[in-house]
Write a protein that binds this DNA or RNA. Structure first.
Lengths: 190, 190, 190, 190
DNA sequence: AATGAATGAGTCTTCATTCAT
DNA sequence: AATGAATGAAGACTCATTCAT
């Protein structure tokens, strides 16, 4: 069994890893997964290309790490908000707007990369559970989660459509769409 | 100025173009836009790489053509169905299931390629209008289309989630989700 | 022995050939030999790509034809001018300015295509002879043509430098350079 | 920020770059710019195609580098020669003979690539200044450089004509042409 | 005589990734 | 831990040219 690495080195390594993830997330958010390459990510983080591969197996691995950080950030924002439904929706919306490109690529990757899909499914389940805490009357039944899932999917899609401008392009205003979501939530409550 | 080409030649050219689009659509559907290349498309259609460029300016152009064909096919299927809401939903669902990867790449491309986005917006507006014919009580107001748009977005997202298996992975059954859509439609009717 | 083609057909063929050469010359002059292709030449002349190859063996063949036309044009211009040395120089200069890109490509091709080189040499000899007519005291000796050749080379190079702006870029005015040529001519006269 | 690279590595990188330039120069000299490609250059230098692009942005960039090296070489040869006019001319001539194809392509590129033209103009100005050192009585006036420019253009063109054989093809011997240059120089001296 | 369709053989360029140090 | 150098394997796109009609 190899000796545990000295704490100092480990800390440094973790700092590097974090810098890489931050740089990657920024790249994914602004130019997209398919328009960056690992060399750019490394350089933007202040490292040489090869360093990237000391910390991540490949480009997909850092995407997953960035995804994890993204979800954590969203929940942090959500938990900092008070219960008012509309405020929550607007918080989600703001987050989606900011990370539109990232989210799109996430879905594209999920379609071809089983690992991404698995991770996404896992996070969706956590999302449902957290939602149950925020809004107990939308809590899932034992083995029928269709209510929260239906809501989350709808919110997600509507948020994206508002964020990417396609809602407006088809004459649907942000305010009206949010109103529809709120009505939907009411109708879904037990 | 050259004389108008004989009908026979033109027909041949159109046949080639069609074969290319068909081959491309199949590639996009099965391995995805980002995992094919124009050479493969041409060869799969039975032509040399250069032939591709006699018919399409670039890879994106044939994607747009495939997209157009895809939408036409969906509407053909929808119009062949009788009015029953659930049947319509299931038809959409079937179509989405079959073209899941294609649809995902479509969204990814729309995020970076303005041309794709523009085309997508245009088709969305047509979709709303056609929906108004199928279900007059969901017809859009003069400048507030939020009702049909909200519905279409929801259907789209839920269909995708069923199609890609993520609905099931988060314990939401197809049947229940469809039931939610139907309930939503009822509540949206004027 | 095949029968001579009917005169009418031949005339038509020649007209086509001429249109192709004219189109080619214009392309070579404006975008250069290396930036056109035979398809474009044919289309610009109003024909289909394949037609090109009914009239010229390849791209080089039409270049040679355009070259021939170019030289003919220059001599026509020169012979329309009266004997005044400076006027002659200015006529050459005007012609070079207009056909700068063409001339450059001519030299580039001469360096790799023996056929072009051979043709160029032949035309140079004709040029010397014609010069002898215009200016008898610059006529070549039996087998020492160095006087007119030296002059022609100098004029050619100086004209190009004026035409392409490099003379001005190195602080040498057109007027002064022409004056040098005239002085040179005087010193070369027998 | 990465530390300055160790001298050893940098030396290696520079060696690679040099090898690439040498290989490129040789290709340009023997088969010409338009008949090589960056892959061939890289392979001839002993590297993979991609390595080329770590050192040069594109084919034109390495051409410029080769051009710079070519000029440096010419001046080195010139400065190693003693002042005798004829010897200098013969040195230039030898250099032109060796790099005939390169020089031709240089001119062709200058006609279409502004960057090449700019560089060429800059070098011409340096050439004039160096000439002023070698032959003070041909030094340019403040803003009238026509004397040295006229001479350089003539020498250039005559050298090329001797080098490419067209002088001989039009019955102008090398010796006579050089004699004309010398006479010209005398007449241009202040 | 003219042409529409088709193509083989490139050519430039990119990128995830490795290796010696 | 970090890196500079290097790369194999593509992939988008071009062009002179041919052939059946």
């Amino acid at each position: 069994m190899p000796a545990a690495p000295p704490t100092k080195q480990r800390a440094k390594s973790e700092a590097t890893q974090e810098k890489l993830v931050t740089a990657a997330a920024e790249e994914f958010r602004t130019v997209g997964y398919f328009n960056t390459d690992t060399n750019k990510i490394a350089v933007h983080a202040g490292y040489a290309p090869a360093t990237f591969y000391k910390h991540f197996e490949n480009k997909l691995a850092i995407f997953l790490a960035a995804y994890e950080a993204w979800v954590a950030e969203e929940w942090r924002a959500l938990e900092a908000t008070d219960d008012d439904t509309e405020t929550l929706i607007r918080t989600v919306l703001t987050h989606h707007k900011k990370h539109l490109l990232f989210r799109t690529d996430l879905r594209a990757l999920a379609a071809t990369e089983p690992e991404v899909k698995r991770y996404q499914n896992k996070l969706r389940r956590e999302q449902v559970k957290r939602l149950a805490v925020l809004a107990p009357d939308l809590a899932p039944d034992e083995d029928d989660w269709s209510v929260p899932v239906f809501l989350l999917l709808t919110m997600e899609r509507v948020s994206d459509a508002i964020a990417d401008g396609s809602a407006r392009a088809s004459h649907a205003s942000e305010a009206k769409l949010i109103a529809h979501i709120i009505k939907l939530i009411d109708s879904l409550r037990h």
